[in-house]
Each structure stands twice: as structure tokens, then as C-alpha cells.
Design a protein around this nucleic acid. Structure first.
Length: 141
DNA sequence: GCCAACGTTGGC
DNA sequence: GCCAACGTTGGC
């Protein structure tokens, strides 16, 4: 089981939008960055991730689960671009903000803090537990 | 809206 | 294979 963080601008596609997709979830399309794609290729069914709202909100707004392995991105004209499907599994009662995450010494190594431009990021188990604790959500939904 | 950081492109 | 130019992302 691995942990991840998915970034999205909520005025384009928010955690509520993903919830509206239900159990079937949604293809995480539009990624055109090799590092982000490689992270998605490494994902397994049942892996968990934070749904992070970038630009507006700047917080870990929800918990998602990988529900389909990497496959060609239906919005890409080049099959080199792949993506997984994710579905919403849990709300985060008190979504930790970027400010709070930056202020937490336990999270100083987080990719979100050190490479903010990567749109699909790995999260370590310790970071996962800590952000869940801050958000008031069960780390093992 | 600005700008820093980063990734990609293309000329040499 | 280097590096300058350019485009994009994302926090502020």
C-alpha cells in the first residue's frame, strides 16, 4: 500500500466534483509530466491519496482511492500519457492547509513543500498519518 | 497579476 | 550534449 497526493484546481475539478462521480470514480487525465505519469504507473488498486486543492483553497480537501491501474489518457493524442482512475472515499473534516503543512516540522520533507510544481506526488506513511491527524480523518478508511 | 521554479525545446 | 529561450505551474 502506497500513499499519494493529487493536485487539482478546484474551480476546474474539485473534490466535490469527484464525489459526484460516485464509486466509478474518474480518470485523472490531463497530466503531461513524466514524473507525475511515472508515479501513476507505480500505483496499485487500493492505494490512497490526498485530493489537494491548488490555487484556490490550498488544502488537502479529501481522501481518494485508486480504482483503476494506469491506462492511456483518453484526452491525450499520444499514448505515452497514461493515468489512473480515482474515486472519493472520505471527507477531511478540517482540511490541512499548505500553511499548516509548511509549519509542521514533521512534514518538512514533503514533496508538496519542496517541489510544489509536481502534480502527482508520493507521500510517505509517516506524512500520511500526520496529515490525516491534522485533518481529523482516519488514516485507514 | 506577478514572478520564481521548473520542465521542455531547439540551435549549435 | 550543452544551454539559452520559452512555456507552464502555482504560491503569493
Amino acid at each position: 500500500m502506497n500513499y499519494w497526493l493529487f493536485k487539482s484546481e478546484p474551480d476546474v475539478f474539485s473534490f466535490d466534483d469527484l464525489k459526484a462521480k460516485g464509486q466509478k470514480g474518474q480518470e485523472w487525465d490531463g497530466v503531461r509530466n513524466y514524473q507525475a505519469r511515472n508515479n501513476m504507473r507505480a500505483m496499485q488498486i487500493g492505494d490512497l491519496g490526498f485530493f489537494y486543492h491548488s490555487n484556490i483553497g490550498l488544502c488537502a480537501a479529501g481522501i481518494v482511492e485508486v480504482c483503476a491501474l494506469a491506462h492511456p489518457d483518453s484526452t491525450a493524442d499520444n499514448p505515452t500519457w497514461e493515468c489512473v482512475d480515482v474515486r472519493a472515499v472520505r471527507d477531511v473534516p478540517n482540511p490541512p492547509t499548505l500553511e499548516q503543512i509548511k509549519a509542521n516540522p514533521k512534514l518538512s520533507k514533503m514533496v508538496l513543500v519542496n517541489n510544489s510544481r509536481l502534480s502527482v506526488q508520493p507521500v510517505t506513511p509517516d506524512e500520511w498519518k500526520e496529515v490525516c491527524r491534522m485533518g481529523g480523518v482516519d488514516p485507514a478508511p
